[in-house]
Simulated assay, not measured.
Amino acid sequence: MKTAAILVARLIFAGVFAMAAGFKFADMNATAEYIASIGFPAPLLFAWLAAFFEIALVIAFLTGLFFSEASLLATAYVLFLAFAFHGPAHWTGNQTEFGFFVDHFTFIAGLLFAAVHGPGSAMVLRRGGRGLVGNHA
């Protein structure tokens, strides 16, 4: 049961970041416009960087390679997104933004838990070229 839960959590993390990257790749200019709307510099550059960063996170979550490090980086990224795009400056007259802001913290909690506990023992690509390791329990 524990192994299945960990694998499902990894798939959820990977799925969320894959969808985010997919939306960026589908309309990079719209993503850049959204980034520009908060006054961030070089929005098209950061849109591309964000998309490729999210793909790297997907790979880490699916393979387990650098899993804890990726979880911590994802935590910092999601925290930045929460404040930059949904933080207190966006709450005036729009309670939905507060809800989006709070939702980021539930995701952050999961990422921090994952960072501490690691990818589990099943379906993990180990550093040093030992290959994909599976737990048959």
Results as ranks from 00 to 15, higher is better:
residue 47 A to N: 03
residue 78 V to W: 02
residue 69 E to Q: 11
residue 80 F to V: 09
residue 35 I to A: 07
residue 76 A to Y: 06
residue 64 G to H: 13
residue 55 I to W: 10
residue 33 E to D: 05
residue 44 L to C: 00
residue 18 A to P: 02
residue 57 L to I: 02
residue 19 M to P: 00
residue 25 F to I: 04
residue 61 F to H: 08
residue 27 D to I: 11
residue 62 L to K: 09
residue 30 A to W: 11
residue 31 T to A: 13
residue 11 L to W: 13
residue 74 A to C: 09
residue 36 A to M: 10
residue 13 F to N: 00
residue 70 A to Y: 04
residue 40 F to L: 11
residue 67 F to C: 10
residue 29 N to W: 15
residue 30 A to T: 12
residue 8 V to K: 03
residue 59 I to Q: 01
residue 27 D to T: 10
residue 6 I to Q: 07
residue 64 G to D: 09
residue 22 G to H: 12
residue 68 S to M: 02
residue 49 L to W: 14
residue 35 I to V: 13
residue 17 F to R: 03
residue 2 K to D: 12
residue 70 A to I: 01
residue 2 K to A: 10
residue 46 F to W: 09
residue 18 A to L: 12
residue 27 D to L: 14
residue 62 L to F: 05
residue 52 F to Q: 01
residue 15 G to R: 08
residue 21 A to W: 14
residue 42 A to N: 07
residue 68 S to A: 08
residue 12 I to Q: 02
residue 52 F to L: 14
residue 25 F to C: 12
residue 2 K to T: 11
residue 48 W to S: 01
residue 23 F to C: 04
residue 26 A to G: 10
residue 13 F to T: 02
residue 5 A to M: 11
residue 2 K to M: 12
residue 75 T to L: 08
residue 43 P to G: 02
residue 77 Y to R: 00
residue 23 F to D: 15
residue 3 T to E: 10
residue 23 F to R: 13
residue 22 G to S: 06
residue 42 A to T: 03
residue 60 A to I: 06
residue 78 V to E: 06
residue 70 A to W: 01
residue 51 A to V: 02
residue 58 V to G: 01
residue 41 P to R: 00
residue 11 L to N: 15
residue 4 A to N: 04
residue 42 A to S: 12
residue 3 T to Q: 07
residue 55 I to L: 15
residue 80 F to R: 07
residue 69 E to S: 06
residue 38 I to A: 07
residue 17 F to H: 15
residue 31 T to E: 06
residue 38 I to P: 05
residue 54 E to N: 06
residue 5 A to H: 13
residue 80 F to M: 15
residue 38 I to L: 07
residue 79 L to T: 13
residue 75 T to D: 02
residue 62 L to V: 13
residue 28 M to P: 08
residue 62 L to I: 11
residue 26 A to E: 09
residue 38 I to C: 03
residue 33 E to A: 14
residue 43 P to K: 01
residue 73 L to R: 04
residue 38 I to T: 15
residue 66 F to T: 02
residue 3 T to W: 12
residue 52 F to S: 07
residue 78 V to P: 07
residue 19 M to C: 03
residue 47 A to I: 13
residue 57 L to H: 08
residue 60 A to Q: 05
residue 17 F to V: 14
residue 10 R to F: 09
residue 60 A to V: 01
residue 57 L to E: 00
residue 59 I to S: 03
residue 20 A to V: 05
residue 80 F to W: 15
residue 36 A to V: 10
residue 59 I to P: 11
residue 46 F to I: 05
residue 3 T to R: 10
residue 16 V to I: 14
residue 12 I to V: 14
residue 61 F to K: 02
residue 55 I to T: 13
residue 54 E to I: 10
residue 57 L to N: 01
residue 45 L to M: 13
residue 6 I to P: 03
residue 20 A to G: 15
residue 48 W to C: 00
residue 75 T to M: 05
residue 44 L to F: 05
residue 48 W to K: 09
residue 64 G to C: 01
residue 17 F to L: 03
residue 49 L to F: 15
residue 4 A to P: 00
residue 15 G to W: 04
residue 5 A to I: 12
residue 52 F to M: 08
residue 59 I to F: 13
residue 63 T to A: 09
residue 13 F to V: 12
residue 60 A to K: 05
residue 60 A to F: 05
residue 20 A to E: 11
residue 80 F to A: 11
residue 67 F to T: 00
residue 37 S to C: 05
residue 76 A to M: 09
residue 29 N to C: 07
residue 18 A to F: 15
residue 66 F to A: 11
residue 19 M to S: 08
residue 73 L to A: 15
residue 57 L to S: 00
